[in-house]
């Protein structure tokens, strides 16, 4: 099977993708790279913009297999990216994604558009945030229920304590 996928479609699936030619020059990049690393340009040598952590740059195209795991870190901003290096006739598609940290999630520097539609890391992070919010609210509900019960007990006790006096008052009123 051979699929033809446009650059825009790859960008939708992998907003932080990069494509390099046989000389490791960047020939295409995803919208996430354009947004967060605006200094990265087409034609720029990849290793000028990124450190490739698990490959010797000189050995990049001598690895043999068609797909290898790859980790990059931007030289400006230290943004880590990871994914797969998919080798093809014209070079290599770096099918990478931004590493989503708690900090990035909280500080609003990135948003859902920077991650692919089925990005499991992003979905898990969202899920954890939602569950954390639900836990906090469940805790608040438990405290509220406890307070309500405590107030109800207090009212009953006060009523019990006050009842002889009230009874005396009623009796006095009735006898007059």
């Amino acid at each position: 099977m051979r699929l033809t996928v446009s650059e825009k479609q790859i960008g939708g699936l992998l907003p932080a993708f990069l494509n390099v030619d046989a000389f490791l020059n960047i020939t295409a990049l995803g919208p996430g790279i354009a947004r967060h690393l605006p200094h990265v340009r087409i034609g720029m040598p990849c290793d000028e913009a990124f450190s490739i952590l698990n490959f010797e740059t000189a050995q990049f195209f001598r690895e043999g297999p068609e797909i290898r795991p790859v980790q990059l870190i931007s030289r400006v901003g230290d943004l880590p990216l990871s994914g797969a290096a998919v080798f093809h006739e014209g070079g290599c598609l770096l099918a990478v994604r931004f590493a989503l940290s708690e900090k990035i999630f909280a500080d609003g520097s990135m948003d859902l558009s920077d991650f692919g539609f089925a990005d499991t890391g992003m979905l898990s992070t969202m899920l954890i945030a939602l569950q954390r919010a639900m836990l906090e609210e469940s805790q608040a509900t438990a405290i509220e229920s406890c307070d309500t019960k405590r107030n109800a007990v207090r009212i009953v006790r006060n009523a019990q304590a006050a009842s002889p006096a009230i009874w005396r008052m009623i009796s006095t009123t009735c006898c007059q």
Binding site: F105, A106, G108, M110, D111, L112, S113, M126, A129, L130, R132, A133, E136, E137
Partner: peptide, 15 residues
């Protein structure tokens, strides 16, 4: 507690 989820959803109206 969902503020971070809101921030992460988009940084402008369209997104």
């Amino acid at each position: 507690s969902l503020a971070s989820v809101m921030n992460f959803t988009g940084q402008d109206l369209a997104s």
